[in-house]
Every structure is written in structure tokens, then in C-alpha cells.
Nucleic acid binder design. Structure first.
Length: 285
DNA sequence: TCCGTATGACTAG
DNA sequence: TAGTCCTACGGAT
């Protein structure tokens, strides 16, 4: 689940369900128990996401810093009188009392990489390490371009580097490079500014859609299952994509088999034809 | 019951 | 670069 759109969506949903509410905070699993006890009964101020980092604010500039890692989940569900007993390893549970109705929302956090109570200064330090986040209106894509245009590292690796760009993960990385027909192994410093601007604008659009529909959809209208008369994708991500986890299957655009290779311990997917290997221009032609 | 896998990121050497 | 951490689930053993 967790690329930037997931965290921004969670921030919105948490704010909707809990902001301004007195919240019961617990750690059924125990690993966040001390902090939970400090926060229990306080009014939740709101939640905000920066890239893949989530901060849930409590009074007095206290923040629960959450990072879901590879497989963490934060589930929000409605409850009536009392929320059900926790299932599995619930690190953090938030329960809104439901000030008037008696029913409310509860949120269960499992498998998170990070769940810590931090100060404003500590939150700022985390944020300071991040590159611009396409989902934030205050983001400056020029800051990412500065890094990319000066780096010989592959654009595929740069897009995953959270200090270059915050919020993009393995799915958006593969998909946005496909949509722009760029070889993932191409060095950052061989891209043109125009190409970067187009990638950024596309990420803003794709990721905003991701927040809205709560999944990653990247195929254009003409390549949807309906338009192509093919079976819709059925897996735990749900969204329609061009190359992510489609290795060995035909490219939706050219029919060439999608390829995969392990790059920095992560699976990289691309179409070798649509994303042809970059070769520097030569004077003769 | 064990193993592999997953949309992530850190630390030690 | 290797090792580590976090959890759930499906498939092989």
C-alpha cells in the first residue's frame, strides 16, 4: 500500500475522523504503550503527511510519527458502542469517543516501520531530509531537478530517493518512467529540464488521483481494460498499471514482454521497447 | 510448519 | 553490500 498517496489519504481520513475529538489511545501490542498512555484522552489536533511520513498531532506540539515501511497498514473503521478486540499485532489504536452519537471511528496500526512520539523539532528534522513532495502545494520541483541534473545515478534510483523526491515508491517510479518512455537506467544528468517538468506534472496528477481513489491507477483511457477488452488487474493493489509487476506479460502499448531486474534490492519493471535504452546524441546522422 | 514475498528505509562495516 | 526490522498471507513442505 504505502506510497505517498496512501499517507496523504490517511492524513485526510484521520483528520476527518478524529480532529477536534477526544481520543482514546492505546497500544494493544504493547510496543507503543508508554507513549499511548501519555496521549490517552487528549484531543487530536490533526494529521499531516510529508512524502511517506505521517504525523498525527496532539496538543503541546506532540506528534506521533508513523512510517508504514513496506507492509505497514493503518486501518480506519467505524464502530458503534465499543470497537472490537484487536486482531493481530496492533501497535497503536485510536478510538474516537463519538462525542454526540455514541458511535465513532477507530484506527489500528500494524506492521509499521516507525511509530514514535516526537517533538516539533524532531518532526522538522525528519521533514528537512525530504525532497519536494508532489502532493504538497508548497513543493518546489526545481529542488529535485537540482539533484537529478547533477547526478550520474540512474533516474530510476533517483526517483526512489526520498531526499530527492518525497512520496514516490516502486509503483509510481516504474509507471511514470513508462508513461514518459524513459529508460530507468538513464543517468539523471542526461535528462532535459522539459522532461523532468513533464514527469513532475504527471506525478502531481497521478498521485492526486491516487489520493482520491485510494489506489494507484496509471493507464490512460485507451489502455483501460474496458477500452482494450482485457481482464482487469486482480491483486492486492487494485489499480491499473502499465508495467509494475507485469514482467513477462505483453506491454499494453507495443506488445513486447515487460521486463524486470533487481536494482538496489527492489524490483524494477519496464518495457525495453517503449523505454528504449538512452544513447547520447552524436553529431553525425 | 516453514518459506517467500511485499508499494521502505535504516545501520554497520 | 549485507543485515536488520516491522506483519500478514499464500503456497509449498
Amino acid at each position: 500500500m504505502p506510497e505517498g498517496h496512501t499517507l496523504h489519504r490517511l492524513a485526510l481520513d484521520l483528520s476527518d475522523a478524529f480532529a477536534g475529538e477526544q481520543v482514546r489511545v492505546s497500544s494493544p501490542q504493547g510496543r507503543f504503550a508508554d507513549s499511548a498512555a501519555l496521549l490517552d484522552g487528549q484531543v487530536l489536533v490533526g494529521a499531516e503527511a510529508w512524502g511517506k511520513q505521517l504525523f498525527v498531532e496532539f496538543p503541546g506540539e506532540q506528534y506521533v510519527h508513523i512510517h508504514l515501511g513496506l507492509y505497514g497498514k493503518l486501518d480506519l473503521k467505524p464502530h458503534t458502542a465499543e470497537p472490537p478486540l484487536p486482531v493481530g499485532q496492533v501497535r497503536l489504536r485510536l478510538v474516537s469517543a463519538g462525542s454526540t452519537t455514541g458511535s465513532g471511528t477507530y484506527a489500528d496500526l500494524r506492521g509499521a516501520n516507525t511509530c514514535n512520539l516526537v517533538t516539533a523539532a524532531q518532526r522538522d528534522a525528519v521533514v528537512a531530509k525530504l525532497g519536494p513532495d508532489p502532493l504538497r502545494d508548497d513543493a518546489d520541483p526545481g529542488r529535485a531537478w537540482l539533484r537529478i541534473s547533477r547526478s550520474r545515478t540512474s533516474i530510476g534510483a533517483l526517483l526512489m530517493d526520498q531526499s530527492v523526491l518525497a512520496g514516490v515508491g516502486n509503483v509510481y517510479r516504474a509507471e511514470v518512467l513508462f508513461r514518459h518512455r524513459i529508460d530507468p537506467m538513464r543517468p539523471g544528468n542526461t535528462l532535459r529540464r522539459k522532461q523532468w517538468d513533464a514527469i513532475w506534472d504527471d506525478l502531481v496528477e497521478l498521485m492526486k488521483l491516487g489520493v482520491q481513489v485510494n489506489r494507484i491507477d496509471t493507464v490512460r483511457e485507451e489502455h483501460t481494460p474496458e477500452a482494450m477488452g482485457r481482464a482487469p488487474r486482480k491483486d492486492d493493489h487494485g489499480g491499473e498499471v502499465y508495467v509494475y509487476r507485469r514482467s513477462g506479460q505483453p506491454c499494453l502499448v507495443c506488445g513486447t514482454n515487460v521486463r524486470t531486474v533487481e536494482l538496489q534490492q527492489r524490483n524494477l519493471f519496464w518495457c525495453p521497447k517503449c523505454q528504449r535504452t538512452y544513447r547520447p546524441r552524436t553529431s553525425a546522422k
